[in-house]
Measured scan of single mutants.
Amino acid sequence: NQASVVANQLIPINTALALVMMRSEVVTPVGIPAEDIPRLVSMQVNRAVPLGTTLMPDMVKGYA
């Protein structure tokens, strides 16, 4: 199964993503693939992302 990017902490709106904020986990539904974690670093989220939430492409500015 494909691992997705999951929030490792609460990520406030407009926060630039850092490695420590993300982990990979096999979840349903599938979100952003875990292999894209390096690409996500320094991109901003466009909403608050609670701990344990799967990151979806529409949550990250400039990802989709």
Rank of each mutant, 00 (worst) to 15 (best):
N1T: 13
N1I: 11
N1K: 12
N1D: 14
N1F: 14
N1G: 11
N1M: 13
Q2N: 13
Q2C: 07
Q2M: 13
Q2H: 14
Q2L: 10
Q2D: 08
A3S: 09
A3W: 15
A3Y: 09
A3I: 08
A3N: 08
A3D: 06
S4I: 02
S4N: 00
S4H: 02
S4F: 02
S4T: 04
S4W: 03
S4Q: 01
V5I: 09
V5T: 07
V5N: 01
V5A: 10
V5C: 05
V5Q: 01
V6A: 02
V6T: 05
V6C: 04
V6D: 00
V6P: 00
V6G: 00
A7K: 01
A7W: 02
A7T: 13
A7G: 02
A7C: 05
A7P: 01
A7R: 02
N8D: 11
N8W: 04
N8Q: 08
N8H: 07
N8V: 09
N8L: 07
N8T: 12
Q9R: 14
Q9L: 11
Q9V: 12
Q9I: 15
Q9W: 06
L10A: 12
L10R: 10
L10T: 11
L10Y: 15
I11N: 01
I11S: 00
I11D: 01
I11Q: 00
I11W: 02
I11F: 00
I11V: 06
I11L: 06
P12T: 09
P12D: 08
I13E: 11
I13C: 07
I13F: 14
I13D: 10
N14E: 08
N14C: 06
N14A: 08
N14T: 04
T15A: 12
T15L: 04
T15S: 08
T15Y: 07
T15F: 06
A16F: 14
A16E: 12
A16L: 13
L17T: 00
L17W: 02
L17N: 00
A18T: 15
A18E: 15
A18C: 06
A18V: 10
A18M: 10
L19Y: 10
L19D: 08
L19P: 09
L19K: 11
L19T: 10
L19Q: 09
V20A: 14
V20N: 14
V20Q: 10
V20C: 06
M21Q: 06
M21S: 05
M21C: 04
M21A: 05
M22T: 01
M22E: 02
R23W: 04
R23N: 07
R23H: 06
R23S: 10
S24V: 11
E25W: 06
E25A: 12
E25M: 11
E25I: 09
E25K: 15
E25D: 12
V26H: 11
V26I: 14
V26Y: 11
V26C: 06
V27G: 03
V27W: 03
V27I: 06
V27Y: 03
T28S: 15
T28C: 05
T28Y: 13
T28H: 14
P29M: 05
P29V: 07
V30I: 11
V30R: 12
V30F: 12
V30M: 12
G31T: 02
G31L: 02
G31H: 01
G31N: 00
G31A: 03
I32C: 04
I32T: 01
I32V: 06
I32W: 02
I32Y: 01
I32Q: 00
P33H: 11
P33G: 06
P33D: 06
A34L: 03
A34T: 07
A34W: 07
A34N: 05
A34Y: 09
A34H: 07
A34E: 08
A34Q: 06
E35N: 15
E35Q: 15
D36V: 08
D36T: 07
I37M: 15
I37Y: 03
I37K: 06
I37V: 06
P38L: 12
P38Y: 15
P38F: 11
R39M: 11
R39E: 07
R39F: 13
R39A: 09
R39P: 02
L40V: 06
L40Y: 02
L40E: 01
L40C: 03
L40M: 05
L40S: 00
V41C: 04
V41N: 04
S42I: 03
S42M: 11
S42V: 03
M43I: 04
M43G: 03
M43C: 06
M43W: 07
M43V: 04
M43N: 04
Q44N: 11
Q44V: 12
Q44P: 07
V45S: 05
V45T: 13
V45D: 02
N46Q: 10
N46H: 08
N46M: 11
N46S: 10
N46R: 10
N46P: 02
R47S: 09
R47C: 06
R47T: 12
R47L: 08
R47V: 13
R47H: 10
R47W: 06
A48Q: 15
A48C: 07
A48H: 15
A48R: 14
A48V: 10
V49W: 03
V49Q: 02
V49A: 04
V49M: 05
V49S: 02
P50C: 05
P50F: 09
P50T: 12
P50M: 09
P50E: 09
P50H: 11
P50I: 08
L51E: 15
L51M: 14
L51P: 15
L51K: 10
L51Q: 15
L51W: 12
L51Y: 15
L51D: 13
G52Y: 05
G52A: 05
G52E: 04
G52H: 08
G52C: 04
G52P: 02
G52R: 04
G52F: 04
G52D: 12
T53A: 10
T53D: 09
T53S: 12
T53I: 08
T54M: 03
L55M: 12
L55T: 01
L55C: 02
L55E: 00
L55A: 02
M56D: 04
M56H: 08
M56N: 05
M56K: 08
P57I: 06
P57Q: 08
P57S: 06
P57K: 08
D58G: 09
D58Q: 10
D58F: 14
D58V: 08
D58P: 06
M59Y: 13
M59K: 01
M59S: 05
M59W: 12
M59L: 05
M59Q: 04
V60G: 01
V60C: 03
V60A: 01
V60E: 01
V60Y: 00
K61A: 13
K61N: 15
K61Q: 15
K61H: 13
G62F: 08
G62P: 04
G62V: 04
G62N: 12
G62D: 12
Y63K: 03
Y63E: 03
Y63A: 03
Y63D: 03
Y63T: 03
A64N: 14
A64M: 14
A64C: 06
A64L: 15
A64I: 15
